[in-house]
Amino acid sequence: MSFSLFLPIAGNAVNIFLLLSLGCVVGILSGLFGVGGGFLMTPLLMMIGIPPTVAAASDSNQIVAASASGSYAHAKAGSVDFKMGVLLLIGGVAGGSVGVMLIRLLRAMGQADFFIAITYVVMLAGIGSYMFFESLGGLRGTRRDLDEGALRPSFYARIVRSLPWRVEFERSNVRLSVLMPLGLGVLVGALAAIMGVGGGFIMVPVMVYLLRMPMHVVVGTSLFQILFTCINVTVLQATVNHTVDFLLALILLVGSVIGAQIGARASRRLNADQLKILMAIIVLVVAVKMCLALVLTPDILVTYKGGH
């Protein structure tokens, strides 16, 4: 018995246990770090024979389940800042539109793929390295306290303090201008649209380092925001491109919702620096993989059009 299932929209047969395992691993990452896992899952699905467009669309569908499961777990634990999440979401939607327009412009100039690849590598390597060394400092006890009062008022801090419409975000225990989450939402939304991913792995560091939110609230709030982003993407892909393979998503989500719960529980057992350093290592591994893909000669010098 082969334990393979034929996926109607992907048009290929894949081992059911392989899909369940992939879903579970990505679900654990989702619950642990508050990322959707699209930057990991989509390439993995493509590697096992799923067409790129179907992989990206179906992955969005399963992220809906994982993020709903993770959001619920975090909300129940009181670690979702809904006010911050909604503002970031509004900014993200606007930023997504900006990113799509920018890509269209760059495609017309013939520079889109170069721009996307460089954005990926710079973002992943930059975020990963910063998180890694900062968390390492925290674990060794050599990092300066990041409390606002202890910081020398840097240029960034002066700008943050000078912005109007400051409100209290009780759950995150920060007082910020509403322009901050809105503006950063636009930035992350634009980057996510350019890179063709949900943006969780950019949003998490933005929340930690620029919005100064506590790590456990960051994870829950990021998942809350990803839930709505992926609902939008799934419905759009199903309507416009007919590329959502529900059977594929269903198998992945069975694995991922279980993984998300395991991840959410594990995240409460680890301290913030341990979480951040694990996240940094994963981001750096993906960055190295992307660098190698850019430098090493591919086996085949064409691919089917579509996907990220």
Partner: peptide, 8 residues
């Protein structure tokens, strides 16, 4: 997907 996520 939402129902499955919430149920879990």
């Amino acid at each position: 997907a939402i129902a499955m996520g919430l149920l879990t």
